[in-house]
């Protein structure tokens, strides 16, 4: 069974079963062809993982979906709408949020302000509601709510970055290398946080080099190498393959 998503990618999207669709996406920067004609899709409530070694183009895909790097070709469709040219801010308002590579929490802002910054577009009531949920899910956030986020450990910062992305209850959560540089314990904590997101019915697109813990969380997987799709399939199918071959 080859990759069915790739074959169907060129067909027009039907909003009911497709949340996000990349159609022959090209990304270039500094002259490098980082992503070449990539076609994948994410259904509502589904978790999809992009795996690959450094330089495979995973982060470029995530950043292109958020609009932080421009697409050089192809289309990005979200809820049936072409968003290829829209700004990151309007994508954020439409329900796409990101936990970026390297986490990039607002280092000088407190934990609470970081979480609230994700709810810039929301009403006060909605922001408070999100905050309450976050504090319930991660009690240690409440305990240290006034601490500047820059003083936290990498694993704690990752949780703050995910919490910030969740404040606005997005439809699609993009996680760019959430396990990068984390200890096994912090990876387990972050995985637990991602499961909470899944329970809420949000769709998640994860780019990750650490394929094993990422695949544990996903429904579908895509393996990238030097900007192109090497293989796609269900997690079971991906797990049956020799992943290290794609890295080393």
């Amino acid at each position: 069974m080859a990759s069915p998503t790739v074959e169907r990618a060129a067909e027009p999207a039907t909003p009911t079963d497709t949340l996000l669709e990349l159609d022959r996406l090209d990304v270039r920067y500094g002259g490098v062809h980082a992503v070449q004609e990539l076609s994948i899709r994410v259904r509502p409530g589904e978790t999809v993982v992009l795996i690959g070694a450094n330089g495979a183009g995973k982060s470029s895909v995530i950043n292109a979906i958020m609009g932080l790097v421009p697409a050089a070709g192809g289309q990005i469709r979200y809820l049936g709408q072409d968003i290829t040219r829209s700004s990151p801010a309007s994508r954020a308002r439409a329900g796409i949020r990101i936990s970026p590579e390297g986490r990039r929490v607002f280092a000088h802002l407190s934990i609470e302000d970081n979480i609230l910054s994700g709810g810039y577009t929301l009403s006060k009531a909605k922001r408070d509601e999100a905050l309450a949920w976050m504090y319930e899910a991660f009690p240690w956030l409440a305990a240290r709510r006034k601490a500047p986020a820059g003083t936290l450990s990498g694993g704690q910062q990752q949780i703050v970055a995910i919490a910030r992305a969740l404040t606005a209850s997005p439809k699609l959560l993009l996680l760019d290398e959430p396990f990068l540089g984390l200890s096994p314990v912090a990876i387990a904590d972050t995985s637990a946080a991602i499961r909470l997101v899944q329970e809420r019915g949000m769709a998640v697109l994860i780019s990750e080099q650490m394929a094993r813990p990422a695949l544990k969380l996903a429904d579908h997987g895509h393996v990238l190498r030097t900007g192109t799709l090497r293989r796609s399939g269900t997690v079971a199918e991906i797990r049956d393959l020799a992943l290290s071959e794609d890295y080393l």
Partner: peptide, 27 residues
Amino acid sequence: RVITAYLGVADSDELADEDNTLAVATL
């Protein structure tokens, strides 16, 4: 150890030995 550095471990408390053997064999 190198493969684990790249692929991670499936869970922090269980080192998936069969994953490694499989990967190594194919490699």
